[in-house]
Design a protein around this nucleic acid. Sequence first.
DNA 1: CTTTCGCCCTGAGTGC
DNA 2: TGCACTCAGGGCGAAA
Length: 315
Amino acid sequence: MPELPEVEVVRTGLEPAVHGAVIRAVEVFEPRSLRRHDRLVMGEFAETLAERRILAAVRRGKYLWFPLGEPGDASSGEADPVALVGHLGMSGQLLLRLPGAPDDRNLRIRLHLDRDDNTPRDEGHYREVWVNFVDQRIFGSLAIDRLVPTDDAGSGGAGSPSPLIPESVRHIARDPLDEAFGDGLFFERLSRRRTAIKRALLDQRLVSGIGNIYADEALWAARIHYDQPAHTISRRKARDLLTQARLVLEKALAEGGTSFDAQYLNVNGEAGYFAHSLNAYGRQGRPCPRCGRVMVREAFMNRSSHLCPRCQRLR
DNA sequence: CTTTCGCCCTGAGTGC
DNA sequence: TGCACTCAGGGCGAAA
């Protein structure tokens, strides 16, 4: 399940291949993957993308977007900036393929990119490349959206200094690895929430990029029970939780993300290694790496929570 | 405003 | 061998 580290691995993998490239053609094999594309506002998906240059690869939380130049123009878009916006959902992948490669299983959308500049070809760069959007469960999607100014005038996300963000991503909070993430504001809002801490961690309007895996990992590291009401957690404890969240996200990113099966792969179709480093997620029935107590899995919010019943007690 | 709930979706796995 | 059923869960709109 792609969360912040996995999406960032995809972004950095895609960046050198797509930055500056022009979209020559688009094939849509599964219209449901365009569920969030508003054709009445932006026009037909494929037609709107044709002959547009990709100016950057940007990420905030679990969202990716690619600001686009004017149609058929080499210069950057100014008048009415738009972007190709992507979310991987539960099982989405963006795979780089050479033209002519056999179809990937569950291939939903394919972009044909053409690099018409003088980028050196001897460093693994190719003039033409396919970007395949693969998604088994179709929870992910691609869409075209308008770019609007960020609420705090800071950069939209990782990968570009531009203070613009897709309209449909504006409600997403900055993620813990974002330099402009406001720690103080986060603690303030957390202290006013009467809901369970894990529910708060998963609320992308409060803090983005954290999903079920990294929520369980951060809570285990900070020794907090998932159902502990957010407002009962001390400032000191909340600060530790944010620190632990950052540590686990950074470590997972450094290890290429978490792959259990073929649900998450990087742009070259390779798995990440962080699954070997998990301390809580999926470790029910096995000893807690810290105290040795047998860990458990409990149902919470229609998903699973993994915890050590000794280290993580409800207070 | 906050909070919760149900729906979207496929394929691997399980039990009979 | 086959079929019905369960589970995995991020995001969002609706409802309380």
